[in-house]
């Protein structure tokens, strides 16, 4: 994430991507899923590209919290960004995370179903051959 910030601050923002407390991970996940570079993200949010590092190091507003709206308004005022777009970004990343989790849960089960289906097909073939 490029900006006018110090190198250390930019490195911190990249490190923050691994910690769910910060907005950094949300922004990075959204950029990755939508093939957006920093300029594209800043453009979408309607903020300065130089504010992205600061924004990344903010606390991530929790969508299920009563504070969510107030937090979004606060960040929108502070960075003069489009709060509705930030909400969209957070919700989309949350939805992606939920989907990934669902696939991980369903993955082994889907494998078992496929194995059962394979066994059924094999049995059918055996039956056809024998009679």
């Amino acid at each position: 994430m490029s900006s006018d910030s110090s190198d250390a601050l930019a490195r911190a923002a990249r490190r923050a991507e691994q910690q769910p407390f910060f907005l950094a991970g949300v922004l990075a996940a959204y950029q990755s899923a939508n093939h957006l570079d920093d300029a594209g993200l800043a453009d979408l949010l309607g903020c300065e590209i130089s504010d992205l590092v600061s924004l990344a190091l903010c606390r991530r507003p929790a969508a299920d919290s009563a504070q969510f709206g107030a937090d979004i308004d606060h960040l929108a005022r502070r960075f003069r960004l489009r709060g509705d777009r930030l909400v969209t970004i957070i919700r989309q990343v949350d939805a992606l995370a939920a989907l990934k989790q669902q696939l991980q849960v369903d993955g082994p089960r889907a494998g078992m179903l496929r194995a059962a289906r394979d066994r059924d097909e094999q049995a059918d073939n055996e039956e056809d051959r024998h009679g």
Partner: peptide, 10 residues
């Protein structure tokens, strides 16, 4: 405040 962590780090 959600931007306080960022400001403290900066």
């Amino acid at each position: 405040e959600p931007d306080a962590p960022s400001d403290l780090i900066a």
